[in-house]
Design a protein around this nucleic acid. Sequence first.
DNA 1: ATAGATTTGTTCGTATGTATA
DNA 2: GTATACATACGAACAAATCTA
Lengths: 89, 89
Amino acid sequence: MDPDAEIDHEGPVPVFRQLVEILRARIDRGDWQPNRPIPSEAQLVQTYGIARETVRKAIRVLVDDGVVFVVHGRGTFVSHPDIQGEQAD
Amino acid sequence: MDPDAEIDHEGPVPVFRQLVEILRARIDRGDWQPNRPIPSEAQLVQTYGIARETVRKAIRVLVDDGVVFVVHGRGTFVSHPDIQGEQAD
DNA sequence: ATAGATTTGTTCGTATGTATA
DNA sequence: GTATACATACGAACAAATCTA
C-alpha cells in the first residue's frame, strides 16, 4: 500500500481499513520510530478528513496486530519491532 | 420472560422485541437499581451479539414505556419506580 | 497546588447503505 | 413495499489520565 495514499470515501473498502493500511505503510517506511508516538487521534482526524471513531477503529486493529500500543492520556506509540508478529496462535 | 433468556435469531419474534422483554425482566428482578445505569449500548451489543441499532431500538421502547431514561454522553438509567406506568392514556 | 491544555476512554445521537424476510 | 438487522461513518458530550505552566 502506498503510504501517501488518500482516503477514498466512494469505493467499497471501508475507510478504517484504508487507514489501517496507510498507517502500516507509513510505519514500515519509518515515518515514526519504535517507542515514538504516531500523530494524535485529533491530528489523524484532521489529516485524513475522517471521524474520530473511524481513526480509533483503525488504531484498534493495529493494536490487535501488535503494531502500536496506546497509553491513556499520553498517545499511541509504535511497538518494538522485535515484538511484532509474535503474539497469538 | 426469563431474564436469562438468550436471543433467538431464527424464530418469528424480532430481536429487538426479545431484548425489550429480557431487559424488562432483568430490571424487574433488580439487576440494576433505580437511578443506576444499565449496561452501555456497546456492552449490550457484545453481551447479546446483536447490532447497535437493534439495541437502540429496544431501548427506545423502554424509554417510551418509562422504564428507563437516557442521558447523552452518560448512559441509560433505570427510572424511578413511582413514575413508571403513569404516563400516556 | 492549581489551572489549563492535550490526549485517550466511554457514551449516546444521527445518517446511510446493504441484505434479508 | 415494509420491517428488521447489520456495518459503517460522522457528531457530540462527558470522563479520566497526563503534561505543562
